[in-house]
């Protein structure tokens, strides 16, 4: 999907958890992505983060260490 839409969806999730303490918020964002996003979408998000081009909420960046790495990059 378009990088803008992917970023928007990730940012929406981050905004919801922003009221929590930062570490807890980051874990929640990551868990949500692990639970509900298909591996292909998580891979795209990781690519987007790596490219540094998307305008992403700081919590999305903070969630990266907790993200499950997709076994196959494209399911």
């Amino acid at each position: 999907m378009s990088p803008e839409k992917l970023a928007r969806m990730a940012n929406q999730i981050a905004a919801v958890f922003a009221a929590l303490p930062e570490d807890e918020a980051a874990r929640n964002v990551a868990q949500h992505l692990n639970d509900f996003w298909a591996p292909a979408m998580r891979a795209e998000l990781l690519d987007l983060i790596a490219s540094g081009s998307g305008r992403l909420h700081p919590l999305v960046h903070a969630a990266v260490p907790h993200l499950r790495r997709p076994a196959e990059a494209r399911a």
Partner: peptide
């Protein structure tokens, strides 16, 4: 059974537009 979540309807449509 695949242990990873699959695509939701809107995601399927996005992936279709992307050719995958």
């Amino acid at each position: 059974i695949d242990p990873e979540p699959g695509l939701r309807i809107p995601n399927m449509l996005d992936e279709a537009v992307a050719g995958r």
